[in-house]
Design a protein around this nucleic acid. Structure first.
Lengths: 154, 154
DNA sequence: CAAATATAATATGTACACTTATTATATGCA
DNA sequence: TGCATATAATAAGTGTACATATTATATTTG
């Protein structure tokens, strides 16, 4: 034995790492989704927040920034910043909460509602195409993702 | 039929969307990995680039910024910025390429090598824990991710 | 060999994403 | 009731991530 080999890596290929793969797939997905949303003039985070506002409103939920943050898993600070941008764009309204004066009640403007309805269709179609490579195992894939999400939320 | 119901969303729960799930899992993974890397004073992107430099060097590849960019799928501009940060930290060297004077040859400093070796162990352990919820289906999960990656690279 | 084209790196600018710390207000409990 | 603690939002700062445009150099091709 002369010089010992470098055995920093435990896998033969970086590509065998779930983490590295997950991160690469998500990057790819985000890049393409960003392009798909360009016609609407909104970013991915903006879309997620707008869609969630719409969703929660339809389900008669109180929509405050903290509710949005926990629903989307976008951190509260980013939620605050992005919503302010959306307000400036005239897509979102932020008013004082009726009973909790610390909180802000968030809603979509008519224009915001228009846009998000179209954008949701676009995103759903994009996702359908992006994940079509999974074929019949889409359900299994979703289950695995949900498994990872709930495992980490304890 | 009076007022028509809003049918913006095609799924009953936002959680049934592969895209939304994928993005949430990756966010969670990134947040936790960031914490795991804190002891080393490096970010996720910095880690990915350093690990790739180490990997490519071990495999006798020419390591330029563009090579790193395509290997990691971090875009060239971000690669440039992050590597400059790493150079300032004394973890990376960037020299004029011998034959192609447009390019920069990138390598790790001794300190950089020290750090990345330890960080790789940490990240591998973290990944093992994070993805342990998948159990026996880890291989299948990886295969699905690779499927998505290659489907989109055409 | 010279012009057209491609490539490597980066300046600039926008938009997250997260950390730490702060402000203002609400709420639980002694 | 009053204080300790929790919560909602945000200011400030760092570090990506990407688009567009630019600079410098290499390569291809007529």
């Amino acid at each position: 034995m002369s010089t010992s080999p470098d055995n920093t890596f435990s896998v033969a290929k970086a590509e065998d790492s779930s983490g590295f793969l997950l991160w690469q797939v998500t990057s790819l997905w985000q890049r393409q989704l960003k392009k798909a949303l360009e016609p609407y003039g909104i970013t991915h985070s903006q879309f997620v927040l707008m869609a969630s506002i719409h969703w929660l409103t339809l389900h008669k939920k109180e929509v405050t920034q903290i509710v949005l943050s926990s629903h989307t898993k976008i951190d509260p600070m980013t939620t605050s910043t992005v919503l302010r941008t959306l307000q400036q764009k005239g897509l979102v309204l932020r008013q004082e909460h009726l009973t909790d004066t610390r909180a802000k009640t968030v809603g979509l403007t008519d224009n915001g509602k228009e846009i998000v309805k179209k954008a949701v269709v676009t995103v759903e179609n994009f996702d359908k195409q992006f994940f079509s490579a999974l074929g019949a195992s889409t359900g299994e894939f979703n289950r695995q993702l949900i498994e990872l999400l709930s495992a980490e939320n304890k």
